[in-house]
Design a binder for these strands. Structure first.
Lengths: 194, 194
DNA sequence: ACTCGACCTGGTCATATGACCTAGTCGGTG
DNA sequence: CACCGACTAGGTCATATGACCAGGTCGAGT
């Protein structure tokens, strides 16, 4: 990040949120510093004051958004820790795959981030870090606390790619998200009985 | 497609291939009609003669590329039909997931296509059609010819999202593609013994 | 010979974008 | 009070992009 963009400052956040909205709706193709400035209601120079250019802005957007998603997943799974493991699994997978079946904001934005990541190693690294964090959160939510590491890795090896891939292929499949939930649950039951 | 762009004409193919290369390396952000013209070695007006604008060109690129990928998958699976089912499964999954683990051209291009599809319903529909076709090819390659439809759907429900998701998450996982291959093979063996 | 359509080019022009500069305001500090 | 840094804006200018137009060549058909 440009030194003037403190991630906690209100203006910086405004700019990042505006950029995120444009990225979601118009892709990277439609994202310009001037456009972001217009959306925030400040001058181009003011945006350039905080972010040296489009690439710096995109990088800040990536960091901001993956942090937000990590937090949301952690919060969602924290709310179910009191429930039985089978319940937690079902809720998590159902919420996740149903979201994946719709063209949600998150789906759209991740598609844009994947695209950028395919061309920018630092963004790819940021997404990899996000997925590693997500893997840990998933393992904690889907398995008992004392599950061995090998089992955690195996479960995550199944679930994480599946969930991301479902968001781009799910609508083309003959069966809907509930069937995918059932399938994953039964596979998890085989791998790691609840 | 613009009426002047016959998918079989050499100039049209040249333009599409040039656009695909730029899309792969620079994303949609870097794709311009002038840039494509320069890459082909013709004037902007000549490209505009065949494609009314960038959106028409992108749509042609999508159709061309998914047709190519469908063909390649069908050819690859056709080459293994004489082998035992377990062999075929292993070969297909290994080739696919190892590719997914690298940032191959195909990975890059599909990321760009997903991104565009998130914003353009006709591209999303074209990708859905591609995935439906791919699902059929996968089912034929992974199962015996007389497998019931319900089983085909179930296998595809597992494998297709998995393979696509692996291409964006695989590098962040603790285990590599061979472990993913083994996992999928064992899950397939449970679902549909070879 | 003439006409027509396919194909190709160069040019004009409006618009958008970002790099960069200058200048002003405001609050805090010495 | 003067200075400085944080912040904000407006302006200039170079560059890129695409819409669109006019005109030329060539081959086929009448």
């Amino acid at each position: 990040m440009n030194g003037r963009a403190s991630s906690a400052s209100p203006k910086t956040l405004q700019i990042i949120e505006a950029a995120l909205t444009i990225l979601r709706d118009e892709g990277e193709r439609g994202l310009s510093m001037r456009g972001v400035a217009g959306r925030v209601g400040v001058s181009l120079s003011n945006v350039q004051y905080y972010f040296r250019g489009k690439d710096a802005l995109i990088r800040a957007v990536v960091d901001h958004y993956v942090a937000q998603c990590s937090r949301e997943l952690a919060d969602a799974t924290a709310r179910t820790t009191e429930r039985p493991l089978a319940d937690r699994r079902r809720t998590l997978l159902r919420d996740t795959l149903r979201h994946g079946h719709e063209m949600t904001d998150m789906c759209r934005i991740f598609r844009e981030l994947w695209s950028v990541a395919g061309r920018d190693a630092s963004v790819e690294a940021a997404l990899d870090a996000y997925y590693r964090q997500t893997a840990e959160t998933l393992a904690a939510a889907l398995l008992a606390p004392d599950a061995p590491d090998a089992l955690k890795e195996r479960v995550v090896l199944l679930v994480l790619p599946y969930v991301e891939g479902y968001s781009v292929t799910g609508r083309a499949l003959a069966q809907g998200p509930d069937a995918a939930v059932d399938l994953l649950l039964s596979l998890l039951e085989d791998l790691a009985p609840a």
